[in-house]
């Protein structure tokens, strides 16, 4: 079938579509990406609220103030990064030329896969430490006072977690990494950018 033969087949679709029941129920649902960002903003806000009230209550005690501030900062970063993504998505003008918009989407996806997600993964190796300190404090135990050695071990294990992640990245075969969830996201984003630029250059 030649491309021009395809035209008559394509036009025959019109007749078929005339017979179709076109009642489309308009229900607006958030796309998975937008939904994820909204959840992230809510989680970050709750974290900020809890951590904020904690460090305000303990601002005179440095070893409690610091974990509170860390969690507060993390919550703020969660909110800011999700708000940034939502803002960028809301700024997308779908009536712009295809190449321009698809570039915007691919850049956004690449930023999220290459910068944002690894950053949160590394911070996550340490985040549980201030969180544990806060939880223990809420239960009436001050780990820093009663078991400082344990806190040092926590910090050490945070570094071990980063080292393991880095080691895995270094030693695992590239194909295994590329087939991981994060690897696929990066590869897809990169492929999209490459595909767009080759489409422009051809």
């Amino acid at each position: 079938m030649e491309l021009d033969d395809m035209k008559s087949a394509w036009q025959s679709l019109d007749r078929r579509l005339e017979q179709q029941n076109n009642s489309t129920k308009l229900t607006r649902t958030l796309s998975p990406l937008r939904r994820g960002q909204v959840i992230q903003i809510m989680t970050g806000a709750i974290l900020m609220l809890l951590a904020g009230s904690f460090w305000v209550d303990h601002r005179a005690t440095l070893h409690l103030l610091l974990p509170g501030l860390m969690l507060h900062a993390y919550g703020l970063l969660m909110v800011l990064s999700a708000a940034r993504t939502l803002y960028l998505l809301s700024q997308v003008d779908y009536s712009a030329p295809l190449l321009e918009i698809q570039h915007q989407f691919a850049d956004l996806q690449f930023w999220r896969a290459r910068i944002e997600q690894p950053f949160f993964a590394i911070v996550g190796c340490f985040l549980w430490i201030p969180l544990t300190l806060l939880v223990f404090n809420a239960l009436g135990a001050d780990l820093w006072i009663s078991a400082r050695g344990v806190v040092y071990w926590f910090i050490f294990s945070g570094f071990v977690c980063v080292a393991i992640a880095y080691g895995v990245k270094l030693w695992l075969p590239v194909s295994t990494l590329e087939n991981s969830f994060a690897g696929r996201a990066i590869r897809n984003a990169r492929q999209q950018l490459e595909q767009l630029s080759s489409f422009e250059q051809e």
């Binding site: 033969d5 395809m6 087949a9 679709l13 078929r16 017979q19 179709q20």
Partner: peptide, 27 residues
């Protein structure tokens, strides 16, 4: 495409058309 009236010849051409379109990347 939700056709109400089958048209074997047209169906075949549309099938071929869809198969061809699907071979190309989005742009």
């Amino acid at each position: 495409i939700a056709s109400q009236q089958p048209d074997p010849e047209g169906d075949e051409r549309l099938c071929a058309l869809w198969e061809l379109i699907e071979k190309f990347e989005p742009l």
